[in-house]
């Protein structure tokens, strides 16, 4: 059996894929997602819808997965900076309308608290939005395989600048990113939200 990479949105059984990857994408985006939605349950319900929406940052259309004999091993979501900015604006609008009037006030406060958490991504940068490895398959080198595919996807599209944001406590992921040439750009924190993120960047030659 060989490890294969596939575009998650291209498969006919996309509903099954969505059910499998939605919790992984949620986990990959935490602790930010749980904070911004107010709870793990609210985040899970909303993100399961966002994965289905083509205009979302976490759309299945932007997801690539590794599989071994049909068994998902992990995946990533990546896109150019310009596309990311458009997706994030629409996701924030969806977040705004995801609750009633009372909840909207809380969302507004949470957005304000986290407004400086993620530095802007340039239009000339290829952004790694999410990456995950299935818990049963961690430690087998699949994170490195996913990173290779992500960087290769960016280079093929003509990008030489790569960017990501990672939870500052996620030492394991940070070690992987450093191994692939990523360096810390800036650490940002939202103390009242209990969130700390690290912006990282790398340069790669084009293919």
């Amino acid at each position: 059996m060989t490890v294969e990479l596939y575009a998650a949105g291209s498969l006919p059984c996309s509903d099954q894929i969505i059910q499998k990857i939605s919790p992984s994408v949620h986990e990959a985006g935490n602790p930010y997602f749980d904070f911004i939605f107010g709870s793990h349950e609210s985040a899970a319900a909303a993100l399961a819808r966002w994965v289905r929406r083509a205009s979302s940052e976490i759309s299945i259309e932007r997801a690539f997965c590794l599989s071994l004999g049909g068994q998902p091993l992990g995946g990533f979501i990546a896109m150019p900076g310009a596309e990311l900015a458009a997706c994030r604006r629409l996701d924030a609008a969806a977040l705004t309308m995801s609750g009633n009037r009372e909840r909207r006030e809380l969302i507004s406060k949470r957005l304000e608290l986290t407004s400086d958490l993620f530095p802007a991504v340039g239009e000339d940068e290829f952004y790694l939005s999410k990456m995950w490895v299935d818990p049963d398959h961690q430690g087998a080198g699949y994170a490195s395989a996913l990173m290779e595919h992500y960087l290769c996807a960016g280079r093929r599209r003509g990008f030489t600048q790569f960017r990501l944001d990672v939870c500052a406590d996620n030492d394991r992921a940070i070690r992987v990113y450093r191994r692939f040439g990523f360096q810390e750009l800036r650490e940002s924190s939202a103390p009242e939200a209990g969130l700390r993120y690290l912006a990282m960047a790398a340069q790669q030659p084009t293919e």
């Binding site: 977040l95 705004t96 309308m97």
Partner: peptide, 16 residues
């Protein structure tokens, strides 16, 4: 939103 005038925070403030 696409016109770029309303970022995430400005949009929620507009709705409120």
């Amino acid at each position: 939103v696409e016109a770029g005038l309303f970022d995430s925070l400005a949009f929620v403030q507009l709705i409120s």
